[in-house]
């Protein structure tokens, strides 16, 4: 059972966030352990299991980035698990990431917070672009499943998204230091 099945949705990237939230609420009302009779241990256990699956599916699907990673995993490339990343990442992508990280490390040492913020804004924009590119490829896979080129391109772009996300987390930590 996929996360999409839990909600009775087709496995597509595009979804209506308000509708997903509504479905989550309706299913939680139906399945939540608080709704099970307190004395019925079996019903309670089933309720915990179902609600856990529901919440896990919700966590993944409601987040535009996690949802993309999940669709890629459904297409056969699991970037979330150790060793699952593509080994053939184009060298310019790696260079881009290395340069950005060095720049951030410099800003950190110099306590140059405006510079860090500027870098974060740039990376945020890059990440949005990479995600959009990945989504385009994933949508191609949705319509024609046997499309190894699209899957590979999506995995490259999502690898960038992952690096950018780590970068932004670091920049965030720095931002908190500044506060």
């Amino acid at each position: 059972m996929t996360h999409f099945d839990v909600f009775g949705l087709p496995p597509r990237y595009t979804l209506d966030a308000a509708d997903l939230e509504k479905r989550h609420r309706a299913l939680a009302l139906e399945w939540h352990p608080d709704r099970a009779a307190p004395s019925d241990a079996r019903a309670h256990r089933v309720a915990v299991e179902r609600t856990t699956a529901l919440n896990d599916a919700y966590r993944v699907l409601k987040d535009p980035i996690r949802r993309a990673f999940y669709l890629l995993a459904l297409a056969g490339v699991d970037l979330d698990h150790a060793g699952g990343g593509p080994r053939d990442l184009p060298i310019e992508m790696l260079e881009e990431v290395l340069e950005l990280r060095e720049a951030l490390a410099e800003a950190k040492t110099a306590k140059d917070f405006p510079r860090a913020r500027e870098l974060a804004a740039r990376v945020e924009a890059e990440r949005t672009g990479a995600l959009a590119a990945a989504v385009l490829c994933l949508e191609l896979v949705e319509t024609s499943p046997a499309n190894p080129v699209a899957v590979k391109k999506a995995s490259h772009q999502l690898s960038r998204v992952r690096y950018f996300t780590r970068f932004l987390e670091e920049a965030d930590a720095l931002e908190e230091e500044a506060l």
Binding site: T51, T52, N55, D56, Y58, R59
Partner: peptide, 11 residues
């Protein structure tokens, strides 16, 4: 499991 995940949850 990231923070602010609705509970119960598992990984």
């Amino acid at each position: 499991i990231p923070r602010n995940s609705t509970v119960p949850t598992a990984a």
